[in-house]
Simulated scan of single mutants.
Amino acid sequence: MSTVVFLLAPQLHLLDLAGPAQAFSTAADLGHDYRLQFVGEQEDVPTAQGISLRASITWPELSPDDLVVVPGWRSPEHESHAKFSASTLSRLSAHHHGGGIVASVCAGAFALGQAGLLDGRRCTTHYDLQGELARRHARATVVRDVLYVTDGRLVSSAGIASGIDLALHLLARRHGPGAAAQVAREMVVYARRNGNEQQASAMLRFRSHVNDVVHRVQDIIDFRFAQPLTLPELASAVSVGERTLTRAFCRATGMTPLRYQQLLRLERAEHLIGHGATVEAAARDVGFGDARMLRRLRNRGSDRPLPARRAAPES
């Protein structure tokens, strides 16, 4: 079981906390072993939205498999640096140096900076705070206008709702994109990514329709995209004819089920290649028999093929 510790500062923003907490809680409901704990320097933690939260002042024992998340806050002095004690900041630093992941939402990046974790690293925060973060931590590279930034075991996100994107990214990194897509769907949000990848995952980019049959087929493909899947098999699984499924799928997504599967394979392969895998290894991992098909798909005019037409709205 992995522990996710949320470090709560006074005047924290509820959604900075609730978004990622809900994502990991949903992942636990879906069978992934997560335990959430909330710690602070005081037991009663007032929030910016007027409600107080109860935190533990005792930290749990942490291992490299665990995660510490620092949600953001509102400062009455209009300065976003945290007022955590040296011992709390030392715990953040020790967890990271011990092999664990440390993440921040919004102004939480200032706590990471105070802990010495931003020096020489890429990071981000809410767009209103980026200038201040860059001034206070000149040795950090503040990346502007992105949802989140990953630099090794340090992950920082922009403001408020982007904490959900950060959590989904961490879940995808640990459990794969299918698991993150399932959590996102349960939460009725779009899975997003950052860096050189498209911010909207293909698994969620083509979900803005109301056709339940197509959603069920997409669920099958999402979780088995690396396996051989045939149109007869998919049609049988949802109890419709092959032609009916193809028409409905094209109308809802703008592509055939096979094209959708290829897109998921390509997107996952690009992710693996971007993290150091060879083309051959990525091709095998996503289900291509060899690297030739992957190379052909990557060389088709754009590294990221899009459907030939936009999905038509459903009545």
Rank of each mutant, 00 (worst) to 15 (best):
M1F: 06
V4F: 08
L7P: 06
L12D: 00
L14V: 14
L14F: 05
L15N: 00
L15W: 12
L15V: 04
D16R: 06
A18L: 09
G19V: 14
G19D: 13
P20C: 08
D29F: 04
L30A: 15
L30Y: 12
L30F: 11
Y34R: 11
Y34F: 15
L36R: 13
L36A: 10
F38I: 05
F38R: 03
D44P: 02
V45L: 12
S52I: 06
L53I: 04
R54P: 00
A55Q: 02
S56N: 07
L62D: 15
S63T: 15
S63Y: 05
L67G: 06
V69I: 14
V70G: 10
P71D: 11
R74I: 01
R74T: 12
S75L: 13
E79S: 13
E79M: 04
H81R: 09
A82K: 00
A86D: 04
A86K: 03
S87C: 00
S87I: 04
L89N: 06
S93F: 04
H96K: 09
G99R: 09
G100L: 03
A109W: 05
A111V: 10
Q114L: 02
G116C: 06
R122K: 12
T124P: 14
T125S: 10
H126E: 13
Y127H: 14
Y127A: 12
Q130G: 10
E132D: 01
E132F: 01
L133H: 02
A134W: 05
A138D: 01
A138G: 02
A138H: 04
A140G: 01
V142D: 01
V143H: 02
R144V: 12
R144E: 10
L147H: 14
Y148K: 03
T150A: 13
T150R: 15
D151A: 10
R153A: 14
L154H: 07
L154D: 01
I160D: 03
S162W: 09
I164N: 14
I164R: 06
H169L: 04
G176E: 05
V183D: 02
V183H: 02
R185K: 15
N196W: 08
S201C: 05
S201V: 06
F206R: 05
S208Q: 07
S208N: 08
V210H: 12
V210G: 12
H215V: 00
R216W: 03
I221A: 02
D222A: 09
A226Q: 07
P228W: 07
P228Y: 09
L231A: 11
E233Q: 15
A235W: 06
A237C: 10
S239A: 15
E242Y: 05
T244K: 14
R247P: 07
F249N: 07
C250H: 13
T253A: 08
M255E: 01
P257H: 10
R259E: 11
R268P: 00
R268F: 03
A277I: 01
A282L: 06
A283D: 11
V286H: 03
F288R: 01
G289T: 04
L294F: 05
R295K: 13
L297K: 00
N299R: 15
N299K: 13
G301A: 13
L306Q: 07
P307M: 00
